[in-house]
């Protein structure tokens, strides 16, 4: 697990109030929404805001790509990396 992936996991836990969870409980490939971690649409908005605040990346809620970037922690890390190096 990369440092960025670890940071994202902790961000998810803090921003969404996931009591009783630690970064080790979230697999980087685990789906964040639906049957995976079980997050919902309100979490998606909250997580988008947390990423915007932490990494300065504004996400487009209407974009199809956004759904892809939010699939799991690994994809979020790749997305944030691509913005930070761009």
């Amino acid at each position: 697990m990369s440092q960025l992936e670890l940071d994202i996991k902790n961000l998810i836990i803090d921003a969404l109030g996931l009591e009783d969870m630690s970064a080790n409980d979230i697999d980087s490939q685990q789906a964040l929404f639906g049957d995976g971690l079980g997050l919902d649409s309100v979490d998606a908005l909250e997580l988008g805001l947390a990423i915007q605040k932490r990494y300065g990346i504004k996400l487009d809620a209407e974009s199809k790509d956004t759904r892809e970037h939010f699939a799991n922690v690994a994809k979020l890390a790749a997305f944030i990396n691509s913005h930070q190096t761009a």
Binding site: V42, L45, E46, L49, Q52, K53
Partner: peptide, 10 residues
């Protein structure tokens, strides 16, 4: 002038 938490707001 911070964006509002959707959860807190809702």
């Amino acid at each position: 002038q911070q964006p509002l938490s959707p959860t807190q707001f809702g």
